[in-house]
Design a protein around this nucleic acid. Structure first.
Lengths: 215, 215
DNA sequence: TGCATCTCGTACACCCGTGATCGAGATAGG
DNA sequence: CCTATCTCGATCACGGGTGTACGAGATGCA
């Protein structure tokens, strides 16, 4: 449903007219497209404002080949973000959300953090090139999943209900990004990050705050 | 002491040689310098990557006049950030830090948030143009103040001591920025922001978590 | 094998931001 | 009122990124 996006991102260098080429892509063309998308993520991971040339180089492909697949920079970023999020969705869908809301939330945050850590610079780039609405749309499913979980937790009394859900989402989001930044600068070990995030969020959100010794 | 910075930011357009002009600035030149600094903050507040031309326009001054006061973009950003932080210091110095560490911390956060809210885009710009070390230096006093308070709170048993202080600082920092962003997009009212920040930090940091009904 | 498809280098036009230079004119301040 | 100081427009060089045009050659695919 609504698969209107990226309609004709195919047909590299449509020699003469080359308007609406169907997905009759040659195998190597498809491979290159995938490599470019992957390269976009890794290139941006290294340098948040990598140029199109940088990305093409990272993909081991000529700049012109890249422009054959994506008309311009925004379109490239959009496609990369969409793919990245789609892959993330596949992971997050596997996270069991039933049972205790607090436990489920911690599981979801742990999985999400890894994804955020990988794609944060891509996201930063997207925020500069794409309209905010587009980014919101792309994140809709992931955000809804977490929001619903928080709401359920509030109803069941697991989470405090004196906080707006949007603020809880923002807090979670911002903490994950902060942790990613700390990892990047080497001040925090990557494996420790989820623990640190939990150490803040659990007492901040839970109604029963088991912080160690309750004294 | 150590007023080595901005040494010769004076002498606009040193006509011929114009090397080391002492602070014999004319009154209007000083005024313009101040206006430019202020304009840098407000221009960057509107658009995080405003150009030098934008800033000059915002100050109601010619671009060349600006270059008369600051040799290049980094120097301008540096000066603006330094001044902004200096003004912030004046505010923060007035915050009483004695008494209960938790209360003192909340006071400090409330004051800090206002400052962060005003200067966050300036900071973002600075992070792109200035070496990270320089930014660290500029923030040293403010960060040390908060760090010491956190450490004292840990020693006195007010704050948990199972969290690295750096992570507590990061959490605080990141939450303030997040709140500022929410205010900017209109999802949160500015007066409510400090309350929301506290609502997270207090239960997250305090050993005794008074979250309303403790069961 | 043969053709459509795809790759990709070179070269170019264009926009934007920075920073320097020149020089005329305004203005503060003694 | 006179001069050193300051403002600031016009203009240019430069660098870097984006996107387009051309076209030769490699390659998958049937």
């Amino acid at each position: 449903m609504s698969g209107k996006r990226e309609a004709d991102a195919s047909s590299p260098q449509g020699s003469t007219s080359g308007v609406g080429r169907a997905p009759n892509q040659r195998a190597d063309a498809q491979r290159n497209r995938a490599r470019i998308l992957a390269a976009t993520v890794t290139a941006l991971h290294k340098d948040p404002d990598a140029s199109v040339a940088d990305i093409a180089a990272e993909a081991g492909v000529g700049r012109m080949t890249l422009y054959g697949h994506f008309q311009n920079r925004p379109e490239l970023i959009d496609a990369a973000l969409a793919e990245s999020i789609e892959q993330g969705e596949e992971v997050l869908r596997r996270v069991p959300l039933d049972g205790d809301a607090g436990e489920a939330f911690r599981r979801l945050v742990a999985s999400s953090w890894t994804l955020v850590d990988q794609a944060r610079n891509l996201l930063a780039a997207a925020q500069k090139e794409l309209p905010a609405s587009r980014i919101r749309d792309l994140h809709e499913r992931a955000e809804a999943r977490m929001r619903n979980l928080l709401i359920r937790g509030q109803r069941e009394g697991t989470f405090r209900d004196d906080l707006p859900v949007t603020w809880m989402l923002t807090t979670t989001h911002v903490l994950m990004n902060g942790a990613a930044e700390e990892v990047r600068t080497g001040r925090v070990d990557a494996r420790e990050a989820p623990v640190l995030i939990d150490a803040i969020l659990t007492p901040a959100f839970d109604t029963t705050a088991p912080k160690g010794e309750p004294q």
